[in-house]
Design a protein around this nucleic acid. Structure first.
Lengths: 212, 212
DNA sequence: CGAATAGTGTCTGTGAGACAATATTTA
DNA sequence: TAAATATTGTCTCACAGACACTATTCG
């Protein structure tokens, strides 16, 4: 590597290099509302941030995300997706740090909450360190876009599920009420009926579906 | 900066850091077709790449994109937009290099073509170095998405313009024929008629529009 | 039975696609 | 006048939203 020179004749390692971090908004649905996993920032009691890590040598961004979730939050991440690189000078008081923001979506029962962690509803977020508030906004936006038109693309529901369960999940993600009949007709073509029924409390039993 | 330690107790500068580059697909429309600016890679005659540069200290990604376009291609870039970070290990034979891919869209008359540069139609692209072929695909996709539903968002046309000029521009970007009447009805609500008319060759004079 | 939930019928408005008709100009 | 282009009329189809109706179960 040291032999290479760029167009201005300088060796690659002559350039100062930034630290590169990954920060991930781990989204989930708890009690019918969209929530994001926060970890305590430093020692202070009221400073929160997203789980993240610096990128290690030879590691992919995806690898760094999965490692940081495992180590910092005890979460087995699934399919992290890149959102945006945050590069504002001075955004990190530790020096020259770029952050590659990611989003990952996991079922709430796979997010262990211990001391120093919390699941915060995205519509009632505390102040976050760095630009992590912006990252959450990017992540929520990306997730809502995915859920518009596709049945539970992040597989927050385990198949099989009823149309009602699916609709409640989409309502939680979108933050809006959805009409049962319109929703059913929009989703049905992308689902396969299992033939099984589910009796749940009062009311007529519901057909069970899986993703087509 | 040197005083800060991370959660494992190591100083920030103890970590090896990657080189961070920006690479930009400069898209334009020439002769009714979408094209991208390529620069010669190294000394060989048939190796092409996108203009790019390493990120300098204290510089934003956007700043690095605009600088690299000015210096490497003589183009005054406009509004670079981030696409994706390419991080495959071994993607760059010079070492550990991440590339933040960008797209920028400029009018063809502002892209000076000299020795070592070419505008290549995106539907007939030569092999590109690194993963720059993938970057072009990302860029074209992003541009086509922007043009679906919005009249010439990148301002490739100078206002005022006729509906025909606008349609031909959208056909060049999308790579598809568009129905004149459907297109007009889709765009008209987002345009303002200037009241002026343009006589151009044969046929009934056309009304001139500007973006609303 | 009444309440609750599941599922279907159907009306209406909107908008895209497509074709046709009209309008205005040059060759 | 014929050809070319601009613009508008209108028909059809698909689909979302909305409301109403039927179906099935539990208390």
């Amino acid at each position: 590597m040291t032999g290479y020179r760029d167009s201005s004749g300088r060796r690659l390692d002559d350039y100062p290099r930034p630290s590169v971090a990954v920060d991930t908004a781990v989204l989930t649905v708890v009690d019918g509302a969209l929530a994001v996993l926060l970890v305590r920032a430093g020692r202070s009691d009221d400073e929160w941030r997203l789980p993240g890590s610096f990128l290690h040598e030879g590691e992919t961004l995806r690898g760094a995300v999965l490692r940081s979730l495992r180590v910092k939050a005890g979460v087995e991440g699934l399919r992290p997706r890149q959102l945006h690189v945050f590069d504002r000078p001075g955004r990190d008081d530790r020096g020259w740090v770029l952050s590659v923001a990611h989003v990952d979506v996991v079922r709430a029962d796979r997010v262990p909450i211990s001391k120093g962690h919390q699941l915060a509803r995205v519509d009632d977020l505390p102040d976050l360190k760095y630009d992590h508030g912006e990252i959450v906004a990017f992540a929520v936006d990306a997730l809502r876009t995915d859920y518009r038109g596709t049945p539970d693309p992040a597989a927050l529901l385990e198949a099989p599920f009823t149309m009602r369960q699916l609709r409640l999940m989409h309502e939680a993600v979108s933050g809006e009420r959805l009409l049962p009949d319109t929703f059913r007709r929009a989703m049905a073509p992308r689902l396969r009926a299992t033939g099984e029924m589910l009796v749940e409390g009062r009311g007529r039993p519901a057909e069970l579906f899986e993703r087509a």
